[in-house]
Write a protein that binds this DNA or RNA. Structure first.
Lengths: 254, 254
DNA sequence: GAGTGGTCTAGACCACAGA
DNA sequence: CTGTGGTCTAGACCACTCG
């Protein structure tokens, strides 16, 4: 099944996209009503609606029932890995995490909320912890992150209870150097990390928090940190709108 | 704009998805015609069509005008980085590249076609080569890759002409150890690599080759290799259907 | 209550696959 | 030529925002 570039709704999307990119409709501006656009472009409103769905899925606009369709293009945020976990980054500015620096680098104001609890990790996470009996229950650090008050990421960190229980990892603020340093203090310095990147539609709760539709895609990243003993000491599930992020990986050869 | 899970077309998609996952409709099987599904489920054909679009975008089915809608779920292929560029992987089996191993690991048969030419690289690539005057023209190695004859990846490698011109890099087969080893032979051993991962709808030519629609997403990965002198010696643009691949990155801490 | 997008239906016609 | 999905239209009603 091939993309048919000639269909009217695609052409309509192209017209509107060009108007946005040329500045006819600028950031924060509300587009004309769908029926007016339809009349102007000589197509049915359903066609305009379908065209706007494409642009919404690309993150160019955001439609709200009852209000209108607003231009929302944000320049994507860069997430540099493994730099964000490096010693250098951790001590760049104590107390601020990698996320804060990433958002600030884009000229936006970061903000995040942390919730700490204890729970049984989901299956994907227990699979990583393996047979470790101390990980049947984990300390969960859930973060909701914003850039200029726009929600841009969800992250749930799981640390086995027998490692994190009753430690500074169960407090809201993990202090200088963050979780990585606290785990090191506890004798679980991480020597190796991995990330598994996938893309999928958002789950309903994710869609609600991140303000997405089923047409959007999120990066679902499973981040794992291992200590010198080969034990998985932290698993973190990141979920972020794919159109808002660029992932940068860098490594030495061999 | 929130995902409204109650809309009929989403529920219809859920019903059909469940039938696929439960095996009612199995891999390679053709679904009932849209009008029959519509009649069975008590909705309009347009609703079924919209539901099938969702499943197609997820890579679960593939619709072909004139033929029908087929179940096509493939288990995703794992691309392990930086392992695929490591000395170990390069010598695992001489003559077979990382892609071949990745596909074989999924029990499928890899196949690829290479075209070698000379051309001016696109802007995104020249930006990486920077002011390097020897890179105004580059040797381009274009690969089209298949798993069980299904197209699964496009990759265009650019090497500055003053490095690759007239060398083994302009031949179809780069020999044992591949391009990396040939570049090393030429005095440009790579010491550092980076990848920049983004997600977007496919371009028309990509959609045609990879059999995608505008609802699909591809990973667009810019891979760069630097030699000891800090010169970018190879830039490769990978394009692959996002639902067919999982990206695995791994690195030592600090 | 008015404004605006989200969804659904019925009907029609087109484009492409395949006999 | 027939089968099947892709798209478009006209019209309708619903759901949510905001004054």
């Amino acid at each position: 099944m091939i993309s048919h570039p000639r269909s009217e709704y695609r052409q309509t999307a192209d017209v509107i996209r060009r108007r946005i990119e040329s500045g006819d409709y600028s950031r924060g501006h509300t587009l004309p009503r769908e029926d007016l656009l339809a009349a102007e472009l000589g197509v049915n409103r359903a066609t305009v609606n379908r065209a706007l769905r494409i642009l919404a899925a690309e993150g160019l606009v955001q439609a709200t029932r009852g209000k209108g369709t607003e231009v929302t293009r944000l320049s994507p945020i860069e997430r540099a890995v493994p730099f964000r976990y490096s010693h250098q980054a951790r001590h760049r500015d104590d107390g601020r995490g990698a996320f804060d620096a990433e958002v600030a680098a884009r000229g936006m104001t970061p903000h995040s909320e942390v919730t700490v609890s204890r729970a049984s990790p989901p299956g994907t996470v227990t699979a990583v912890f393996g047979a470790d009996p101390g990980a049947a229950v984990a300390v969960v650090r859930s973060r909701r992150m914003y850039a200029d008050d726009v929600p841009v990421q969800l992250a749930d960190s799981y640390i086995p209870l027998d490692i994190a229980g009753g430690t500074a990892l169960e407090t809201g603020d993990t202090g200088p150097g963050g979780m990585l340093s606290r785990l090191a203090d506890l004798g679980h310095a991480q020597v190796r990390m991995s990330e598994r990147v996938t893309t999928r539609p958002p789950f309903p709760d994710e869609a609600e928090f991140l303000n997405l539709t089923g047409d959007h895609r999120v990066y679902a990243i499973t981040h794992v940190g291992w200590d010198a003993a080969g034990l998985a000491v932290e698993v973190c599930m990141h979920v972020m709108p794919a159109h808002l992020w660029v992932l940068e990986y860098s490594w030495p050869v061999d």
